[in-house]
Amino acid sequence: MSPGIPVLLFAPLIVCVLALALDVRLGEPRRWHPVVGFGRLATALEKRLNTAPKDPFRSLLAGLFSVFLLTAPVLGLAIWVSVELDGVLLILIQAVALWLAISLRGLAEHGRAVAEPLRDGDLEKARDQVSRIVSRKASALDEQGVAAAATESMLENGADAVFASLFWFLVAGMPGVILHRMVNTLDAMWGYRTPRFLYFGRMAARLDDLMGWVPARLTALTYMLLGQRELAWRCWQKQAPQWDSPNAGPVMAAGAGALNVRLGGPSPYPSGVKHRPVLGGTQHASSDSVDGAIVLVQRGVRLWLGIVLVTTALLMLMVYL
């Protein structure tokens, strides 16, 4: 057996462990975050090219061109690096790229920033903190509404900012995780059903749905396995199809069921009250459900790493045999 085979087989696991260690130790970069820079570039490009939002054909074409213009050069560079480099240098570069794409520590910090004032009875502070992570009208939320919004954010962002990044790295390496992060960012910026973005943002939204389809269901499965399994499965099967997002539905329903917490329902937004389907079990959302969602994501990451380790060990065994 070639000496390089063990390193090749264990490289994905090593990269994931290093990236998560960087995330736990350093969190998200406070300055010069590439995703922030990418978002600013996307904003500037959208202002320049989205000049005819009421014309469906021109707006769709402008959105398609914008997605290509923003993603193609970065994706090409990621592919070139993955092909031309190898060994320890490539592992380190991949680890940094994955670290910049995931946000496990940041997710927990944002969630706890809401849960702690809720426990202390400081509703105003909890509203202020939840307004940083959701688009709801925080001033109109009561204690339960704040807790539900934060719990939903932990579950949904666990899929988008943690598990989807791990999935795309394991499936397609550094190019996969970078492309997913770019597409997910563009969807978060442009994927609105407003007059300005209805057509322009459609390509980004559809690409994000496509890239998120498998990771979302793996995330839902993860939540189900680590929580109240029977309830999570029933919620996933019966409630998820009622949700307007094909990927958020399974994640939110399975997560709410796993925690046996009641989520969804009417929620106030700046544009008015949005009536959403009810998800989950019977218990009201609280600071405990926010903490529970954080723990569910963290345990899920450990489960995924364990599966990668076992899979790698089996591959090694097959090589030796």
Rank of each mutant, 00 (worst) to 15 (best):
V7F: 15
A11H: 02
P12N: 13
V24T: 04
L26P: 06
P29T: 13
W32Q: 13
W32P: 03
V36W: 13
F38L: 10
R40G: 15
L41F: 12
A42K: 03
A44I: 12
A44D: 08
K47E: 15
T51F: 11
S59D: 14
A62G: 06
G63T: 07
G63K: 02
F65R: 07
F65Y: 10
S66M: 10
T71A: 09
P73F: 15
L75Q: 04
G76D: 08
G76Q: 02
V81D: 14
L85I: 05
L90N: 10
Q94S: 11
Q94G: 08
A95V: 01
L100C: 14
I102M: 05
A113Q: 04
V114N: 10
P117F: 00
L118G: 11
L118W: 10
R119L: 09
R119G: 07
R127W: 09
D128M: 13
V130I: 09
R132C: 09
S135A: 09
L141K: 04
D142V: 14
A148V: 04
T151E: 08
E156L: 14
N157C: 11
D160C: 07
F163E: 12
A164K: 05
L166G: 14
L166Q: 11
L170M: 14
V171S: 06
M174K: 06
V177R: 02
R181M: 05
V183E: 09
L186A: 08
G191W: 13
Y192D: 04
Y199R: 03
Y199G: 02
L207G: 00
L207P: 00
P215V: 00
R217E: 08
T219V: 01
L221N: 02
Y223N: 02
C235F: 12
P241G: 08
Q242G: 01
P246M: 14
A248R: 05
V251S: 00
M252H: 00
G255K: 01
G264N: 12
G265D: 02
P266Q: 10
Y269V: 11
Y269G: 08
Y269S: 12
V273T: 12
G281W: 00
S286Q: 12
S289Q: 01
G292V: 05
I294L: 05
V295F: 02
V297C: 05
G300Q: 10
I307A: 15
V308Q: 04
T311E: 00
T312W: 00
T312G: 10
L315H: 03
